[in-house]
């Protein structure tokens, strides 16, 4: 069994992060004790300004820790030279670089920096690695395009390819899906998931797209001022950790539908009868209008969905009068 347990690639003990300026020390959160294993896809979540970026930079060893220990591959990080660190950990940061002249292939090639001489140009083996990295992210045919011609999603994939070319067991990404449209968010997360499975890389990314991350990440690191809560996304949902992230706001995370919802007062009960997809969608629309579903309580509003082969009909009974609606849109108007 022992050999089946994935090895720990990054581990912290009593780590404190933040900024030290002259005599003042600004610590961002309580001591962090956490461990990431080989092949895990980890999502770092937490509200804005809580210090996710600082944590990522600290774990990438490009920002000094205030205290505590970081171990990379069971060795203390303090024994790593900058070059050692760059061979173990790569970063996809939020910095945007746009250029009319830089080609995709050359940008990916920058990832080879720690592997060669610090002044020598790239060699043939580097070129092979660049090609592999581009094919890993499905961007092979873009190699000779200038990066300014890329869409946001393509740009992010190229930056991931650059991290692949750096060839490190650990990859950090700072909000890789911010500014991306929904389908690109899925593409990026699916790509990261594939890299953890196919190449056994440990991938740690920060994100606000909790609902999408939930479908891909093995582990959530939930960051609050009290420190880091770690667990499977579902466990953290069950124990209310994720719920607490949004305490005090109008937003809550609905575990059942894996979606963010607006915390609205559902002040009117309604009895909805029907089944299938139509039932689910009608329920969504009714909740948006401020109703909660309850057929046990006596109520003066009820909706019955009747389906025939040709069409679906919503029968709304309100104060004893029955309206026939042919779409949810009509039902909405009748209810207002």
């Amino acid at each position: 069994m022992d050999s089946m347990i994935p090895k720990s690639v990054i581990e912290t003990k009593g780590l404190t992060i933040g900024y030290a300026k002259r005599n003042t020390v600004k610590s961002l959160c309580a001591e962090i004790n956490v461990e990431a294993k080989q092949g895990e896809l980890i999502a770092l979540i937490g509200s804005n300004g809580i210090g996710k970026s600082t944590l990522i930079k600290t774990l990438c060893l490009i920002h000094p820790a205030l205290g505590g220990q970081i171990r990379i591959d069971s060795k203390p990080a303090s024994t790593f030279t900058r070059n050692d660190a760059a061979k173990s950990i790569s970063l996809v940061s939020t910095e945007l670089f746009r250029s009319n002249n830089l080609k995709v292939g050359d940008l990916v090639g920058l990832g080879r920096y720690p592997h060669g001489n610090w002044f020598a140009p790239l060699n043939g083996q580097d070129q092979v690695i660049i090609q592999t990295a581009l094919s890993d992210v499905g961007m092979t045919e873009f190699a000779h395009r200038p990066i300014n011609e890329l869409s946001d999603g393509e740009y992010q994939r190229v930056m991931i390819a650059r991290a692949m070319a750096q060839d490190t067991p650990i990859v950090f990404l700072d909000e890789p899906t911010a500014f991306l449209d929904l389908s690109n968010k899925f593409i990026i997360f699916a790509l990261l998931w594939r890299l953890t499975r196919e190449q056994s890389k440990t991938v740690i990314f920060s994100t606000h797209d909790i609902n999408i991350a939930m479908q891909f990440a093995d582990v959530f690191w939930v960051m609050t001022q009290k420190g880091l809560q770690v667990g499977a996304p579902e466990d953290l949902l069950m124990d209310g950790t994720i719920e607490k992230l949004f305490a005090g706001s109008d937003v809550y995370f609905d575990a059942k539908s894996n979606q963010f919802r607006n915390r609205k007062s559902l002040n009117q009960s309604i009895c909805l009868q029907g089944d299938g997809l139509e039932f689910q969608l009608t329920k969504l629309a009714l909740e948006r209008l401020g109703f909660f579903m309850d057929c046990n309580k006596p109520t003066n509003v009820s909706v019955k969905i009747t389906k025939t082969v040709q069409k679906t009909c919503w029968e709304l009974t309100k104060n004893g009068i029955t309206y026939k609606c042919n779409s949810i849109s009509e039902l909405q108007q009748a209810l207002r």
Binding site: I62, K87, L91, S93, E95, L110, Y113, P114
Partner: peptide, 8 residues
């Protein structure tokens, strides 16, 4: 950040 993370 990128430069540092690449060992520069």
């Amino acid at each position: 950040n990128y430069a540092r993370s690449m060992g520069l």
